[in-house]
């Protein structure tokens, strides 16, 4: 069976919980004490979609603005992007515009079709909420193309985290197949008819 690798980028302001979300998804664990990410963290996991085993490479990027100039290097070859805000911080939602634009500029992805999802993290902190769900959904609908799927998650309790990542994986897969004729990013296309994971170049 051909093995597919998808590269997923997690973006959002500092301290919205990007590392926590990724770790919750990959390791099903939560800690309140993740160090601030510098550069980017990497984790890899497998997802099964329609009996296909998909390898996910998840890149958790640094949120601090200062590191944005480096962030672009991680975007290259991305198959999907997870935008994260914090439901207790209104600013983190409005910043998503910047993150999304920046991402599109650097990847050259099409605004209408590139697979994004939005995660509102920390939904266990209901009493501190400052971003209503409707507002976030409005933001998601305001973009060109299909409305962006919105999930409210809690990296702490694990609520909705798997669903969100599963969804983004599906989006990336769909995109992957529809894009197949267009642009190839060799790094992530595995040789289809070769069962060996041998590091052969592009077989096409």
């Amino acid at each position: 069976m051909p093995k597919r690798i998808l590269k997923i980028i997690v973006l959002g302001n500092a301290s919205v919980g990007k590392t926590s979300l990724m770790t919750q998804y990959v390791n099903r664990k939560f800690s309140i004490q993740y160090k601030a990410t510098i550069g980017a963290d990497f984790m890899s996991t497998e997802a099964v979609i329609d009996d296909d085993r998909i390898t996910l490479h998840i890149w958790d990027t640094a949120g601090q603005e200062r590191f944005q100039s480096l962030g672009a290097s991680f975007y290259r070859g991305a198959d999907a992007c997870v935008l994260v805000y914090d439901i207790t911080s209104a600013r983190s939602l409005t910043s998503l515009d910047v993150w999304r634009d920046e991402f599109l500029v650097h990847t050259g992805g099409k605004e209408e079709t590139f697979p994004f999802i939005v995660i509102g993290n920390k939904c266990d902190k209901e009493e501190e909420r400052t971003v209503e769900k409707e507002r976030a959904e409005l933001w998601c609908k305001s973009k060109r193309g299909k409305p962006i799927e919105h999930f409210e998650c809690s990296a702490k309790t694990g609520q909705n985290v798997h669903e969100a990542f599963l969804h983004v994986t599906k989006l990336a897969l769909e995109q992957d197949t529809s894009d197949a004729q267009e642009v190839f990013i060799p790094e992530h296309i595995d040789v289809d008819h070769d069962t060996k994971p041998d590091q052969g170049g592009c077989g096409c």
Partner: peptide, 19 residues
């Protein structure tokens, strides 16, 4: 493998390896 220093070494550099 497409692994450039930017993909792993940023925190080595910024924190002087303290992490």
């Amino acid at each position: 493998s497409g692994v450039m220093p930017v993909t792993y070494a940023v925190s080595w550099i910024v924190c002087l390896l303290s992490r």
